[in-house]
Structures are given as structure tokens and as C-alpha cells.
């Protein structure tokens, strides 16, 4: 069965990056920061590519909402093997509904049976854009999927839930959000990187409204009170238990 897949991806700071805060703008200072495709989105791209490879046909499209700089993120996904990409120009925001509306406006016209998201973006950690977009499109959505298989007009999704795993069946067209599981992302080959330069990348203005989540302040997490080395070696165990009981009161 052939099937086109669209993956929504986001450009985020590398997870190794030390975040510097610009107090005045209540935002991260991007100077010198390396940006990457959000890790869960890479899993989703990998899942889409494997779906296409298993079928031997179909197209993998990438979609993002962001600034011009997000072209770089799309090119890296094209280098992995995606076929085409669309950049909806607008200002990324913590208001996932703004993002979801921009993405949904584009997806509504595309009629693609399977749309994949990462379970969460590594910058805002909202974990919301996927199910919001699905709801706006009136499509079913399965979240936190670790692997899936196509079964006729349906998809069988494996997902982790509190206390176990579930297999969930959903009819196409559907939206899935992908978490870490079986889709270890491939590295782009040199050939892939070269090919990516020639693949279609469309840029257009996003249909995005105003953000209703207003960041008033961005600050460093409160420093944890300096910890204490209770001791070295097994002899320290008894003292640790006493401290946990009497001082921290957690035992």
C-alpha cells in the first residue's frame, strides 16, 4: 500500500546547548547557538521514511512553521531522505494553538492520509501541537507512538502508557505523535546532502494569529541548594538514610 506522509518538524537549539537568557526580551539569546531538528521529530522523519521504503512508493513531505532560518532544518530532513518541504513563515511561539492553526491550514488542503509529529518539541516542551492540529482537522490522533504498522485503511500503533503498553487501531486519515522507540534516526549520507539541495522547498507566509501565551520573564532555574557529599564508600550509607529520614523527611 502506498501512502504519502507529512512530518511536522521544528527547529530547536541543540540539546547540549547552554541556554543564555536575554532578560530584556525575555527570550533565549541565539548568538552562537547551534540549532537542530527537534529529536522527536527526527524519530518521526525516520518513521515516515521507513513507511515509504516498506511500501516502495509514496512521498515524504516536511512541514514547518518558523523563520527563514528553518530552511536549514528542512534541508537536513531532505538530506535524510524526505522528498519535499514547506516552510510557513511566521514567528514561533509557546502558544501551540497558533502553530497548530498555521499547520492545519496547510494540511487541510493537502489531503495526506498520514501526518506525523514529534511527541514534544525540545525547546518549549509543550507536548500539544500534534493533538491540537489533529483536533482542528477533525482527524483522530494517537499520541506517544513508539512504532506503527499499516493494516489496510488502518494503522496499528504501539504506545506507552502508565503501567504498560497499548496497541491502538486508528483509521486513516490519521495523525500520530512519535516518541522514542524503534525509529533510531539515520544519518544523512553525503549523497543525501547533495541531493537535498535540489529537492523542492517551498516557502510561503503562514496563516498565523497572535500568540495568547505571553512570556513575561525567562529566568534560570532556581539553583538547587548546594548538595553535600555524605561520605565515601559503603560506610556512608547509614548516615545517608538518617539524613533522608530526619533532614529531608522523605523516608
Amino acid at each position: 500500500m502506498t501512502l504519502d506522509v507529512i512530518v511536522c518538524v521544528k527547529r530547536v537549539p541543540d540539546t547540549e546547548t547552554r541556554i543564555r537568557i536575554d532578560e530584556a526580551s525575555a527570550a533565549m539569546d541565539p548568538t552562537g547557538v547551534k540549532f537542530i531538528m527537534s529529536p522527536y521529530d527526527e524519530y518521526a522523519v525516520e518513521a515516515a521514511l521507513r513507511t515509504k521504503e516498506a511500501a516502495g512508493a509514496g512521498e515524504v513531505g516536511l512541514l514547518t512553521f518558523g523563520e527563514e532560518s528553518s530552511q536549514e532544518t528542512l534541508r537536513s530532513g531532505l538530506a535524510m531522505g524526505a522528498d519535499r518541504a514547506t516552510l510557513l513563515i511566521g514567528h514561533p511561539t509557546q502558544d501551540g494553538l497558533v502553530t497548530a492553526k498555521a499547520l492545519a491550514a496547510e494540511l487541510a488542503g493537502a489531503d495526506t492520509p498520514l501526518v506525523l509529529f514529534g511527541v514534544k518539541a525540545a525547546d518549549d516542551d509543550q507536548q500539544q501541537v500534534g493533538p491540537m492540529t489533529a483536533t482542528l482537522l477533525d482527524r483522530p490522533c494517537v499520541t506517544g507512538v513508539t512504532s506503527f504498522e499499516l493494516a489496510g485503511d488502518a494503522v496499528l500503533c504501539h504506545r506507552e502508557v502508565e503501567g504498560g503498553v497499548e496497541v491502538v487501531e486508528v483509521e486513516l486519515p490519521a495523525v500520530l505523535t512519535i516518541t522514542k522507540g524503534t525509529y533510531d534516526p539515520r544519518y544523512a549520507s553525503l549523497k543525501g546532502i547533495m541531493a537535498a539541495k535540489k529537492k523542492p522547498l517551498e516557502t510561503k507566509p503562514a496563516a498565523a494569529g497572535a500568540s495568547r501565551i505571553v512570556v513575561e520573564r525567562l529566568s534560570y532555574p532556581p539553583a538547587r541548594a548546594p548538595g553535600r557529599i555524605v561520605g565515601e564508600g559503603p560506610e556512608a550509607a547509614a548516615e545517608l538514610v538518617r539524613l533522608l529520614r530526619e533532614e529531608a523527611k522523605v523516608l
Binding site: 541556554i19 525575555a26 509557546q94 516542551d125 512570556v215 513575561e216 525567562l218 532555574p221
Partner: peptide, 16 residues
Amino acid sequence: RPVYSGKAFAQVRVDA
């Protein structure tokens, strides 16, 4: 809200 995997804390207002 912790953001950037807890490397920063955002104080946000929800205007709705």
C-alpha cells in the same frame, strides 16, 4: 513553565 528541558523557567501569562 520549565522550557529548554528545564534549563530555563518561563513565566507566562495566558491571555484567554
